[in-house]
Amino acid sequence: MNKKIIIPGERIGKASEYESGKGTYINNNYIYSSQLGKIKIESKQTGKKIIEIENKQETAISKIPKIGDKVTCKVIKINPRLIKVHIYCVEEKQLNEPFFGIILTHDIKSTEIDKIKVENCFKPNDVILAEVISLGESRSFSYYLSTAKDDLGVILSINSDGFFLFPYSDSEMICHENQSKEKRKVAILKK
């Protein structure tokens, strides 16, 4: 295995032999690197080899949410039409500063879309898992998120008395201290 450290702009292979992966770009039939790190060559089942630059440091690319990424957010504001959240984590990468996100009411659940009441699903300060469905329009500057899947929804919540709430069913959470139940869109996490 080649242990050489590659710096940006270095020519690392022919475009006919390899496919360009993360941290590389193609120019004039050659593959060049665009990041600092080590070469990693992965062969696919189809026979094509992918060349990419591996860097153990968290790189800038992985920190921006993409469509389909699972993000961890905190609910900031709710109103009957939409929920505003701050995105703190993309997949397993923690962000230095939060991004803004919006969940529209009809993206909360996949069933009974007309009957959704926002206050029965989320409360401010809940920690939720959601999926990015759109990068947003140029004016709004927030990512559009969705929780319309079984494993997406509230994962951590605290009630008004300051106690933790635990999942009871897919639409309720229970407090073990005083046995009170509250309605939430709960994420059912598979182990």
Partner: peptide, 11 residues
């Protein structure tokens, strides 16, 4: 920029 890991085509 290189330290921050922002992809650039050349040095």
């Amino acid at each position: 920029l290189i330290d921050a890991g922002i992809p650039m085509i050349d040095f």
